[in-house]
């Protein structure tokens, strides 16, 4: 187990700058998720930590030791790849034992570790099979077993669940989280899926365009997004956002008046982006007239796509709704849960 530290990390591919000075400290035993749209540099950052990419600038330290010029194999890390990258010609047992064999552990120790890891991951019946004889979920577990068996200082996961179907993904998500709670190994997990990030992380670093937009605990990011990008990236369905102007201590937009949280520092006449999450728009008893476009009953809750003037909104209401397409409804935005962002900079207005 070890802390990981990125200091002013930069990465250029020729003239293209991929990372613009990332600094991030990951505590010992922490589950850190790097999340962001594709091309934001999250995988590159992970691969630099793994030693698979050169570092153009800055320093990476694992457990206090700067590893910039240390080979992958000497960094004491283990990585789970999106494609699993299992050795196709080796059995599950051989796949898991490979790294131990290379570091010349005694065979009794190798056997013991492989068997114990297989036990943890329910892979014992499959130890003598080849990867091609396994299902996607089992392969995923072998890939994790290969990482666990080494007892490394840091686990690296590069989008490990994206090749699985939705149901299995949810199951594996829980499995990885449970595993982390059991092993308490420092983990860096890359994903583009904000749901994975929210459900698994101790802390999330939201990345965009080679920078960290915000770093924080999942619910911190959800409740107080630092800027428009994080606000719209975190949360599903996404936050509703539209343009407005500060007037008489509320926001005017889409031809009506929207309530704002108490104590905001926005000034009269300031152009803002008004953000409100779908679950913070109640149906009925409010000030905003809307027309229902689509109703999606999910059982426990109902998702409605509505229009205020020409702007589409998503509304999530608990329980069932009797509204149908074409119906006119009144929305009641929750003032305390509304978010204000400066229209020009996109930054949160406290």
């Amino acid at each position: 187990m070890a802390a990981v530290s990125f200091q002013e990390i930069r990465k250029d591919f020729g003239k293209t700058k991929v990372l613009h000075g990332i600094s991030l400290d990951i505590a010992d035993g922490e589950f850190m998720v790097l999340v962001g749209p594709s091309g934001c540099g999250k995988s590159t950052l992970l691969r630099m930590l793994a030693g698979l990419e050169d570092i153009s600038g800055g320093r990476i330290a694992i457990d206090g030791r700067v590893v910039n010029d240390v080979e992958s194999k000497d960094r004491d890390i283990a990585m789970v790849f999106q494609s699993y990258a299992l050795y196709p010609h080796m059995t599950v047992r051989e796949n898991m034992a490979f790294s131990l064999l290379l570091r010349k552990d005694p065979s009794s120790l190798i056997d013991e570790r492989v068997n114990r890891t297989a036990g943890i991951l329910n892979l014992t019946p499959y130890l003598e099979r080849h990867p091609r004889e396994l299902s996607g979920g089992q392969r995923q577990r072998v890939a994790m077993g290969r990482a666990i068996v080494r007892d490394p200082k840091v686990f690296l996961f590069d989008e490990p669940l994206s090749n699985l179907d939705a149901k299995l993904r949810v199951a594996m998500r829980a499995e990885i989280k449970a595993l982390h709670q059991r092993l308490k190994t420092t983990t860096v997990y890359v994903t583009h899926d904000q749901v994975e990030a929210m459900t698994m992380a101790d802390r999330i670093a939201v990345m965009n365009d080679g920078r960290i937009e915000q770093l924080g605990r999942p619910l911190e990011l959800y409740d107080r997004p630092a800027n428009l990008f994080v606000a719209q990236f975190i949360g599903s369905p996404a936050m509703n956002v539209f343009d407005g102007v500060m007037k008489n201590n509320s926001v005017y937009g889409l031809g009506t008046q929207w309530p704002i949280p108490a104590g905001t520092t926005a000034v009269e006449g300031q152009k803002v982006k008004y953000g409100i999450r779908p679950e913070h728009l109640a149906l009925g008893d409010g000030s905003v007239a809307a027309e229902v476009v689509v109703v999606e009953p999910m059982g426990a809750e109902t998702e409605l796509l509505v229009k205020v003037q020409e702007q589409a909104f998503t509304v999530v209401s608990h329980g069932r709704s009797s509204a149908g397409p074409g119906d006119r409804v009144i929305l009641a935005p929750s003032a305390q849960n509304a978010h204000l962002f400066d229209a020009a900079s996109g930054l949160r207005i406290a």
Binding site: K73, F81, S83, A85, Y87, S99, L102, R103, R146
Partner: peptide
């Protein structure tokens, strides 16, 4: 797949071991 090489490198294989233990069999 190139990830196999990367996995082997992280697993601690030298280029020669990569050649012998992963590349040749495949």
């Amino acid at each position: 797949p190139f990830e196999l090489d990367e996995a082997a490198r992280i697993d601690g294989a030298t280029p020669l071991q990569l050649f012998r233990l992963v590349y040749l069999p495949l």
